[in-house]
Design a protein around this nucleic acid. Sequence first.
DNA 1: TTGAAATCTTGACGGCGTCAAGATAAAGAA
DNA 2: TTCTTTATCTTGACGCCGTCAAGATTTCAA
Lengths: 203, 203
Amino acid sequence: MSERKTDYHHGDLRAALIRAGGALLDEGGWEALSLRACAARAGVSHAAPAHHFGGRRGLLTALAADAFARFADALGHARETAVSREGEARPDAALRAAGVAYVRFARANPGPFKLMFGAADLDFADPEFRAVRRAAYEELGLLVRPYLVDPADAAEDRRLRLLVWSSVHGYAHLLISGQIDAAPDDPAADRPPFDLVPLLRGD
Amino acid sequence: MSERKTDYHHGDLRAALIRAGGALLDEGGWEALSLRACAARAGVSHAAPAHHFGGRRGLLTALAADAFARFADALGHARETAVSREGEARPDAALRAAGVAYVRFARANPGPFKLMFGAADLDFADPEFRAVRRAAYEELGLLVRPYLVDPADAAEDRRLRLLVWSSVHGYAHLLISGQIDAAPDDPAADRPPFDLVPLLRGD
DNA sequence: TTGAAATCTTGACGGCGTCAAGATAAAGAA
DNA sequence: TTCTTTATCTTGACGCCGTCAAGATTTCAA
């Protein structure tokens, strides 16, 4: 349970606190995450986390950055390993697979997901947080690129990213917010109730 | 400032607390809303709000219900007063107007909006909360109905509601979550970067 | 070896949600 | 009217919280 090795100089306390915070995030969401509980789980004094993260805001931002990295990884993995089924173009398969991966991540990790997008007054100026958010946005760009009529048209690029992002994110967010009645363990709900491909081709 | 009339039996303390809570919601969001601050603003003792709402959860649920009612009103008003422009069908105008109204409400009332959809472990069993949420969902049904191929097809009905709801909600939520860089006072951002009409007709 | 810096602890402060007990006003019964 | 009951609101206390200052301990560089 306790991760400390000695009374002083834990060695890797920052990582241990991230792990402890992640566990608390999964259990009670970010609203219920306290620095003191996080410290207790890591086996250190109540004020230790503030030293590494500046305060609760800093810890939440670090946890959100960690979640964003895993999120971008999940999207990237889905895009790369997507297999085209009979007559399905490769970009179409990648897009659909990423959409499912997006929803699946949100459902499997509601705590981190709500933290990432719940606007818990995170520190948007934090360099690491900026970097992982940018990585996720570029994953989106890779998915949309094949559908651009003019790959150099930045406005079209932005519009297509927003279209696919908004629709998938909206479904995922409504789902985990309890607005849509779906069995929590029903894998069929992982698939958005609309097809992303015609949404992009339709213009 | 103080809304009380006498030391005891305020008379309409519940409504006064809703007003005070709404103001706090606009100022600092639901995360920063405390029963004690709400009580202080209404000019009553620190434990008074708990008596009327059971606790913080009850107050937040009541505030969310209040916000949902105003939200449904905004959508309904947009739908009813939508004017068709040269050659535009009436349902198309209503749908587009409601989409703009949805985003506009979210941007103008980020505090209530995040409370409504932020899944702040509200009391989803509360009768009033259930009623206003249902009213909003039925507003959505009125917008989508004209596009149903078979008005009796419940599955299609649900699918179209989810499509338009997801896309507009996703855009609105990404916007107020700071994920999309847009000037907070830019009215052009009220309009989703996609047209809802072909999204519904496209199938 | 020694001084400085980084790491973590200890203790305290006010604010918070919640509960129990009490005070006061309103409403109903006689 | 007076008495009793009920609803409303206050007071006080409890433990948990984030944060800060000060101290203790370890590491590291000079």
